[in-house]
Write a protein that binds this DNA or RNA. Structure first.
Lengths: 133, 133
DNA sequence: CAATTTACCTATTGACATACTAGGTAAATG
DNA sequence: CATTTACCTAGTATGTCAATAGGTAAATTG
């Protein structure tokens, strides 16, 4: 399940993409357009900054700007920066304790296949693919 | 993310499939083989009974039995009976309040496409497909 | 019939993550 | 120097997940 954090992150990136790279877009405007609490968006945007996806410009006339062109972002990397790894099950999440039953678990291959499917789907989509309907 | 409930449900069904239909399999044995708390499995199996996937036989020599042949179960229906709808985002979950932004949300089509992908993947797999590695 | 083994039922709990909110400080501009 | 913006730390309500606790009812076996 994709949580609000990941969905909001993607909507922020899309909003920035639509505003264009000329002048930075203040978070207040994004919050208004997207109808999301500005306070909550601050948390999300901070992570996008940390991931190197957007840069912030302080002061009057400031705001946020994309670091790359929309076609150079995959949806997958945006989602993962907000949500952590897109693992279908905890057995496959990296950093988790390896399951002692893995060697003969009949379901593990299923989860692994689904994870590949998910990864390929989201990393195959570009931010620019979502810019118009 | 697939939770333990869904994963355990699938493992129970697989365990029952492997034991064969001759005599019912007591939950105690499944819990031992799968190394899952029997108490927790009771909750999960109750839902499998309610869904019409397995039947229970009380008393000595009792246990659980599959209602169909393994090839007549899809993995998707088993997971959904334990987890509820396999929706990627709350906007698409049936029963949820319809999102007022749906009409011009740029991300909704993405989630819808992913949901289709997920649905087709899990409903395309049969329980019998997982019985041997 | 009595003891045992099984399914079946209700309720509760601890831990954790999610989705926020509150209340600031620092930086840049006019 | 006032305003506007980003940036930072902390807290909190709610809910879900994963599991336990402690039973009752049903069927079989000796």
């Amino acid at each position: 399940m994709i949580s609000t954090k990941g969905r909001y992150a993607l909507r922020v990136m899309l909003d920035l993409a639509r505003q264009g790279p000329e002048e930075p877009t203040p978070l207040k405007d994004i919050a208004a357009r997207q109808e999301i609490s500005k306070k909550y968006l601050e948390i999300i945007v901070r992570e996008l900054v940390a991931a190197g996806f957007v840069t912030g410009v302080s002061g009057k006339g400031g705001g946020y700007r994309l670091c790359r062109k929309p076609e150079d972002y995959s949806v997958g990397e945006i989602l993962e920066s907000a949500e952590g790894p897109l693992s279908a099950v905890s057995c496959l999440a990296e950093g988790a304790a390896p399951c002692p039953r893995a060697a003969d678990c009949l379901t593990l291959p299923l989860w692994a296949e689904y994870e590949r499917l998910t990864h390929d789907f989201f990393y195959g989509k570009r931010l620019s693919d979502l810019m118009q309907r």
